[in-house]
Simulated scan of single mutants.
Amino acid sequence: MSLRVTFVASARSAPLLAERFEDARPLDQAGWDEVQRVAADLLPLAAAELRYCSPTPRSRATGEGLGYAPLVQLALRDCDMGRWRGLTLGEAMAREPDQVDAWLADPRATPHGGESLLSFISRVGGWLDTRPVDDGGRIVAVAEPSVIRAALVYALKAPPSTYWYIDVRPLSTVTVTGRGGRWNLRFDLSPSQAARP
């Protein structure tokens, strides 16, 4: 039996340029408004046998707002950014430009004292590979965009540098199908997209 794991990107808690590493802020009003706008389109995903979310406040709130009642999964937490936690990329660059450059260039680097990009991708991939096939074929997971990027890099067996070229927008969805160690990327149209000319 193969699994169908649909990732839903959490709604936003700040404008893109104000995004912070390991952002623990709740949804802002714009994020709540976005959840309400797409709730009808994403509600069918609540029929999944298993429903999970990242432990961040915005992922939990997004999952609840969409009617999923998701279970928190610690393995779906954001990358541990060490002393850069709570900073924007610009703030980290202003404080430690050489260390940020090293981190962006080397997926094994941990200049911030936290988790390397490679370890982060492996952790998220390990979660994906250990989903129980016997409990049903459909899973939905509300997660931070960074977690979804890591899952896609892992599922596609792409080089870690691919992580930097994947754009995951708030409340977007992407599905992988398969089972541990063998995943395929699947694109589906939402009901509202299919109705458009």
Rank of each mutant, 00 (worst) to 15 (best):
M1W: 03
M1L: 07
S2T: 15
L3T: 08
L3Q: 10
R4S: 15
R4M: 04
T6L: 09
V8C: 01
A9P: 01
A9Y: 01
S10D: 13
A11H: 05
A11F: 05
S13Q: 09
A14D: 02
A14E: 03
A14F: 03
P15I: 04
L16D: 05
L16Q: 04
L17R: 13
L17W: 08
R20M: 07
R20E: 06
F21P: 03
E22D: 11
D23K: 06
R25W: 02
P26F: 02
Q29S: 09
A30Q: 12
V35G: 01
V35H: 02
R37H: 06
A39H: 09
A40H: 11
D41G: 00
L42A: 04
L42V: 07
L43E: 11
L43Q: 13
L45C: 07
A46R: 15
A46E: 02
A47M: 04
A48V: 08
A48W: 06
E49L: 00
E49G: 14
L50W: 01
R51W: 05
Y52E: 03
C53A: 14
S54R: 09
P55C: 09
S59R: 07
G63W: 03
L66C: 02
Y68M: 11
A69S: 10
A69C: 02
P70F: 02
L74M: 08
L74H: 07
L74F: 01
L76S: 10
R77W: 00
R77Y: 00
D78H: 12
D80V: 06
D80A: 13
M81W: 13
R83M: 09
G86M: 13
T88C: 14
L89A: 14
L89F: 15
M93A: 15
P97C: 14
V100M: 13
W103K: 06
A105N: 12
D106P: 11
D106T: 11
R108T: 12
A109T: 10
T110G: 06
S116W: 07
L118W: 07
L118G: 02
S119Y: 00
S119H: 12
F120A: 06
I121T: 04
S122E: 15
R123V: 08
V124N: 08
V124C: 08
G126P: 08
V133Y: 00
V133M: 04
D134E: 11
D134H: 01
D135A: 11
G137T: 12
R138S: 07
R138Q: 11
V140S: 01
P145A: 07
V147T: 09
I148Y: 04
A151M: 02
L152E: 06
V153E: 03
V153R: 08
A155L: 10
A155E: 09
L156Q: 12
P160I: 14
S161R: 13
T162E: 13
Y163F: 15
V168D: 03
V168L: 10
R169M: 08
S172Y: 02
V174Q: 10
G178E: 05
G178R: 09
R182P: 00
W183M: 13
N184E: 15
L185W: 11
F187W: 14
F187T: 14
S190W: 14
S190K: 15
P191L: 06
P191A: 14
P191H: 03
S192K: 11
S192Q: 13
Q193N: 03
Q193A: 15
R196S: 09
